[in-house]
Design a protein around this nucleic acid. Structure first.
Lengths: 344, 344
DNA sequence: TAGGGTTAGGAAATCGATTTCCTTTTCACT
DNA sequence: AGTGAAAAGGAAATCGATTTCCTAACCCTA
């Protein structure tokens, strides 16, 4: 009875393929997995392949993983899913992974639920061969990965003394934005950041002050604002800064397009024209930048490349045991749109 | 030597725990997996638990899955990751899954790469116990799931004759938006949809004409536009419609906030005031709606509930073999903000 | 045709956990 | 103390694939 049962109801196993082709399980395995440690006669190969096709055989990943101690799966931990930068990274990383015959699983690192799916089941349970980490707000994750010596690569994040990270250059890009504005004649620059205790905020602030110093200017505490809660807050923060400052800014760098947009709304609400009376630039591009009149100038980073390289570097490390490096992608581009004016 | 080797370098297995506790593997298994088919003396239990804790033992998911024929993992296939509705669905589904001790893996159904990770490795290779499907643009996926009799649930999508889907009511919501506008005195309504060949576009168009008919009005082909490529196109489409129509619309329904935003820009570019000369409402809310002055009125759907219920229904079906139902969440809310005016 | 080297393919161990089936121990009761 | 039932725990099969080790068949040459 098991014979009928197997053919009809259940999913075929390798044994079924072997039986159908009239060969041993081992031979079927050799044919299916391709990696020929042994030569197989062409005619036998075809018999097995035909049988597999007819039965609709698909190898069982779980069994394979158990035996091979390899899952050919990668995980990526992301803090938020609807951030366009992460979206791009995920997409390109998945594409690169698939090209090398790996799968990529995405797992959200929920703030209220740090005990993520990926972490609990996959990493601890050896469900993935490696992990891309795009958030370090929970340092416990990286610690644990290191402790269990699971290959992992920090993506768009870096950590003091940590081997294996790949980043874009927020610092230099921000510094160059500042230089760009100064070259256009701006002298009073404001900076409205996202949460300053987070990685991106810190790097951008660092770049901001670095850029100013390169131009022989000194940062003015009064012109530096922090915005934790998005658009509406950005408008308020801007107004507060503008009104309070002795000499108001002629240009503002916003951490991202949401903040830039909010700031523009704030500026307009107190009668300021953009870009004539206030130049605005976003330190991170997104589709939102184009949804304004004028469109918002913004810095574009090679996030697609970042995701691709990250996946490939991780896979290399898994397959060749190669050490992971710390890579910094220096490329970026200031997309000049209409929100910045020249004072000259 | 293997003894030392195991303790030092490698990850502990159940056998190591058993050895450390001085019991048999089977006993250790019974303690660790909790499900007591057999009673275990409290003292023995503690010994095993202590040993496991000391060794840092974590069960190997792959081996477990192989033996149990269950992975306690769910997959979700999403068409795009940076759409706020999908973001909400994913987040709440993941949360619900974790609460029931399942993992949720997200996989992007890339258009140019329909051969997704989830599909290839997980579904075919029995890597997940069930799948949430949020896109039907590739009907092959659903076909294949059905053919392999893998539990799956359509989320925010439905298919003729398909058992197992959970949706929000785009049709009724859109119809009620139309009624709402008509009650405010609007008679000439325009509708700018996203791609009309896709699910959401079809449902909204259906609701739009249904709403009009309920109010005794007839849809005017001239006032129906399609926008496939986002903001800038929406502005153009709107202008074209407005200029071309004999009697111009006093209100417009946009499929989503990006289109609504683009339309508003288009309207302003031809000198129209919003909401005084043109009312605008989005049939789908997103943070972008609040990034306007005036803020854009929009329809809010219970996507969080959708994701939660979807995960739970799928898990129920997996665990109890219960049939999956077709559920429609009727709740929705029209968030009135400033972009709609009354003509009375 | 015997001998040596290849080529082709099979039997069985293995990966790590679960579970069935069985044996031993414990305990209550007479 | 002896008996039977219940409790506690162990040995081994199992899940589905890979791989090592081995044997049989084949081919060529001397």
């Amino acid at each position: 009875m098991p014979e009928q049962f197997r053919k009809g109801v259940l999913v075929p196993r390798l044994d079924d393929v072997a039986a159908a082709a009239g060969v041993a399980r081992s031979t079927a395995s050799r044919v299916m997995s391709g990696e020929a440690t042994l030569t197989i006669r062409e005619e036998t190969r075809q018999r097995v392949l035909d049988a597999a096709a007819k039965l609709g055989y698909r190898p069982d990943t779980r069994a394979r993983a158990l035996r091979l101690k390899r899952t050919y799966a990668l995980g990526i931990v992301v803090p938020e899913i609807d951030n366009p930068a992460f979206g791009t990274i995920i997409r390109s990383a998945q594409k690169a992974a698939i090209e090398r015959r790996y799968s990529l699983f995405i797992s959200l690192a929920d703030k209220d639920q740090p005990d993520t799916a990926l972490y609990r089941r996959l990493v601890e349970g050896k469900g993935v061969d490696g992990v891309l980490v795009t958030t370090i707000s929970d340092p416990g994750l990286v610690d644990e990965l290191r402790r269990r010596s699971i290959k992992h690569l920090l993506v768009n994040r870096e950590l003091e003394g940590h081997q294996g990270s790949i980043i874009v250059d927020y610092v230099e890009a921000t510094a160059q934005v500042v230089e760009h504005l100064v070259m256009l004649g701006h002298r009073r620059l404001a900076f409205i950041s996202g949460p300053l205790h987070q990685y991106a905020g810190q790097k951008r602030l660092e770049g901001f002050t670095k850029g100013l110093r390169r131009c022989g200017l000194v940062p003015d505490e009064q012109l530096i604002g922090e915005c934790n809660y998005g658009w509406a807050e950005a408008a308020e923060v801007f107004k507060r800064i503008y009104v309070a400052s002795a000499a108001p800014p002629s240009a503002v760098c916003a951490a991202n397009t949401t903040i830039a947009s909010g700031m523009i709304a704030g500026a307009r609400s107190i009668g300021l024209e953009v870009p004539d009376e206030l130049s605005v630039i976003s330190l991170l591009d997104s589709p939102l930048a184009l949804m304004h009149v004028p469109a918002i100038s913004a810095v574009q980073f090679p996030f697609e490349e970042l995701g691709r390289l990250a996946a490939n570097e991780l896979i290399d490390a898994i397959e060749n045991g190669s050490e992971m490096e710390n890579v910094r992608l220096e490329r970026f581009r200031i997309a000049e749109r209409g929100s910045v004016s020249s004072l000259r």
